[in-house]
């Protein structure tokens, strides 16, 4: 069992992070906490993707010395980690930042209208005003 966990410990870490984020998104009653949960969730996914690109004993995928002219020599693939997950996650990071930005702007709108970011209080205000 321990062997199994250690051989895939990256997945366990990301799953735990993801559960924390998911719980915060659904269970917390404060909008900012929900938003932080969303960020944790997205970070977990980013960690997950990046960890899939790792190869034991490999280095960053930057080829120094293999520039112009001698492109015919075969590059040893196992020496460089997988670049594709990194590329995907650069995009996903930007997407998550943009989502956070829009969500914060929405929170500003909510705060201007109700002067609070607690879901319970907002529900109470809406009930009192009959909307």
């Amino acid at each position: 069992m321990l062997e199994y966990i250690i051989s895939k410990y990256n997945f366990w870490i990301y799953v735990i992070l993801m559960m924390i984020g998911l719980y915060a998104m659904m269970g917390k009653r404060n909008f900012v906490k929900k938003l932080i949960g969303m960020n944790i969730f997205q970070s977990a996914i980013i960690l997950f993707f990046v960890s899939t690109g790792v190869k034991a004993g490999a280095t960053v995928p930057i080829l120094s010395g293999h520039g112009h002219g001698h492109g015919h020599e075969l590059i040893e693939v196992a020496k460089y980690i997988n670049p594709l997950p990194h590329v995907l996650m650069l995009t996903a990071i930007v997407v998550s930042i943009a989502t956070t930005g829009v969500a914060l702007a929405v929170l500003i709108l909510i705060y201007r209208r109700y002067n609070t970011l607690e879901e319970d209080e907002i529900l109470k205000i809406r009930k009192d005003t009959g909307v």
């Binding site: 895939k8 790792v54 190869k55 034991a56 004993g57 490999a58 693939v77 997988n82 594709l84 997950p85």
Partner: peptide, 19 residues
Amino acid sequence: DWGDPNSPASSHVSPKYIQ
């Protein structure tokens, strides 16, 4: 397993990028 250089993720599409 983590860091396995022969996993499908590292052996199907990505080798061509590196080469």
